[in-house]
Design a protein around this nucleic acid. Structure first.
Lengths: 240, 240
DNA sequence: TAGTGGTCTAGACCACGTG
DNA sequence: ACGTGGTCTAGACCACTAT
């Protein structure tokens, strides 16, 4: 007797919400109707509406905020990120006219993990610097990078951390070389809870994890890094 | 008066479940306790347990099946996928001793989209073959690839589709060349609902979308493809 | 104070799978 | 017939934000 489809109400409401977000009826950074309004509109229990919203939120469309409402997420159009043997993040963004900045969240000197020791070909007893770098584009957090450098290759590195804005600027200005990309491993994952906080992103939006090994022009490894980049904000281009 | 943490019950139950899956208490392909059992165990309402399970499922740990129970997902350890200018999927898997197969889901001859026309440098009026290829490793669906080829370059291509197992075998055996990778674009996304069905995967597990342009050894483009690969089953390695 | 989303209870009926 | 998960109702209290 009913029209046609037999779909769960909460799924229909979720589709209704997503449809209206897609078409701009519910605009970015604006609120969707409150739970109570949706209850009235669809003549259903609040729980059903909440189930629908939970789904829409989990798919990354909205972010509910207690006491305020449910806001439509900005849908970033992905920025292209060219990975070649020599490209740097900042040059990449500059060439596309994208405003960007880097921030050193923290650093330490410590003993390397087994993986780091192997990749950087470290001798026993050698220590490394670990840096956590947060990158923004257009004032939006984009990526967190854990980068590991052999202490032996970078004497007095922390001296250059004041007014940090780019690791490669430091390397070029004070160590007079530019690392060359040796290999990168790409994997699509979900963000760790810690990264969710740092990147201020929904926890169900995928991230691209890029594990890279960079070499000195002389041929030996100098940097091992793991970046977690918002998947909805970047496309990584590799030319062969 | 309560111990310490003030966390929502459903979050605590979700953590309990994930913890037990991690440590193998709830084994792969086995069922977690039923909703009712969890209700009794934690002395909470069924709705709370369902909220917890919804979260755990959305994070990709379990898949609820109506009438049966809630099964712990197999957590695949990712297979390495080397992308270089000349590597093929099958050679990649062979070299790692991974059992694999390919299946042609469907094909058609049609007019190209604007994107396809540009990438393949097609003349006006040229048509293309579109193939949907499903790949398995160890009998698990791994990826769906939409691949587009200019009809003009591949006369009678559909004649070779019986007993399809690898597109590149056809190209090598009947057209006597092997495409060379020109460039690939990587993006981490969530799967489209259609891909969820084809790949029989949870809809919240990320996928790696790889858009590639392949060229003929003679230098002109011959294949434009978009692959969606389960993120938890692959790592893509690029050497520079 | 009023409105928002967050949490939780209690109970009902349905659809599916197994016996 | 029974147990499983899926859907939905009705109502309560809390925490946060705005005014």
């Amino acid at each position: 007797m009913m029209p046609a489809k037999e779909q769960a109400l909460h799924l229909e409401i979720a589709e209704y919400l997503i449809g209206n977000i897609r078409t701009g009826v519910f605009a970015e950074n604006e609120k969707i109707p409150s739970e109570q309004e949706l209850c009235l509109q669809f003549q259903v229990n609040r729980h059903v509406v909440r189930q629908a919203i939970a789904r829409v939120a989990s798919l990354g469309w909205v972010t509910p905020v207690q006491g305020k409402g449910c806001y439509v997420n900005r849908i970033p159009k992905p920025v292209r990120y060219d990975l070649s043997s020599r490209t740097r993040f900042s040059e990449n963004m500059n060439s596309q006219g994208v405003r960007h900045k880097g921030q050193l969240l923290e650093w330490e000197e410590r003993v390397p993990t087994e993986e780091e020791r192997e990749n950087l070909a470290l001798d026993d007893g050698e220590t490394v610097y670990r840096l956590e770098i947060l990158r923004y584009i257009e004032d939006q957090p984009l990526s967190v990078t854990t980068t590991v450098l052999p202490v032996a290759e970078f004497p007095d590195l922390p001296d250059y951390f004041h007014n940090f804005h780019s690791l490669y600027d430091i390397l070029i200005n004070h160590y007079h070389f530019r690392p060359i990309r040796e290999r990168s491993v790409f994997q699509a994952t979900l963000p760790a809870l810690q990264d969710v906080k740092i990147l201020q992103m929904p926890e169900n939006v995928p991230v691209m994890e890029i594990t890279s090994l960079m070499k000195h022009p002389g041929g030996f490894p100098v940097e091992f890094s793991i970046s977690r980049i918002r998947g909805d904000m970047t496309k990584c281009l590799v030319e062969f």
